[in-house]
Design a protein around this nucleic acid. Structure first.
Length: 199
DNA sequence: GCAACGATAGGG
DNA sequence: CCTATCGTTGCT
């Protein structure tokens, strides 16, 4: 049982890839934290100091330091004074990028929203900096998916709304939230990302 | 030191 | 639309 989980843990190499690919590929994977586990249904990418919506857009600060850590590091921050948001750091060390985990399908409930998700799992800023690759507390398992996905602009930001860097697992049970508006396919997002990195 | 504001959620 | 609630940031 425990050994099974070890074999299925996503490796650091998975998170070292381009953030848009990681955000897309995390859909359908299983987040495990303590006794909690659930299927990731919604993610967002935040990529580098040139992404105006990224916390690192104004450079390295005490808070954003975690975004510059090695891929697979857990980045958790407090938002609006009352909610926490869970992210997994991606790409190379010292390149600030991460994937925000916004939705989780668990047995008996669908956690829709990053603040809700952290509250239900008990994730707080005390877990900031944990390594999801080597930590015994938190990891992501490589579970298979047959579902497709859509992309949309990211939620709750004022800048960078032209970038469709939100990824939503296609809901086959037909009870998706009205907030999950349809958007262009991921190919355009991947192209946009290439352009923004090459500058 | 201080004040504006936010990768939210829930309620009217 | 409104606001609860507080750490981070940037400015004075």
């Amino acid at each position: 049982m425990i050994m099974d989980m070890e074999n299925k843990k996503l490796s650091r190499a998975f998170f070292e890839r381009p953030t848009l690919e990681v955000a897309r590929d995390l859909l359908g994977k299983t987040l495990v934290f303590g006794r909690h586990s659930g299927i990731i249904t919604e993610t967002e990418a935040y990529i580098g100091e040139n992404d105006p919506a990224c916390h690192a857009a104004r450079g390295r600060t005490k808070r954003t330091e975690t975004m510059y850590a090695k891929a697979g590091t857990v980045y958790i921050y407090l938002i609006y004074g009352m909610y926490h948001c869970l992210n997994i750091v991606t790409e190379a060390k010292d390149f600030p990028a991460a994937v925000l985990i916004r939705g989780l399908r668990m047995e008996g409930q669908h956690l829709d929203g990053p603040g809700k998700l952290c509250k239900a799992l008990g994730l707080t800023r005390q877990h900031n900096g944990l390594d999801a690759i080597t930590s015994g507390d938190i990891c992501i398992l490589d579970t298979p998916t047959t579902h497709g996905h859509i992309t949309t602009p990211r939620i709750g930001i004022r800048q960078g709304t032209d970038l469709h860097w939100r990824f939503v697992l296609q809901d086959t049970s037909g009870n998706s939230s009205p907030r999950k508006k349809a958007g262009p396919v991921s190919a355009s997002a991947l192209a946009t990302r290439k352009a923004s990195r090459s500058s």
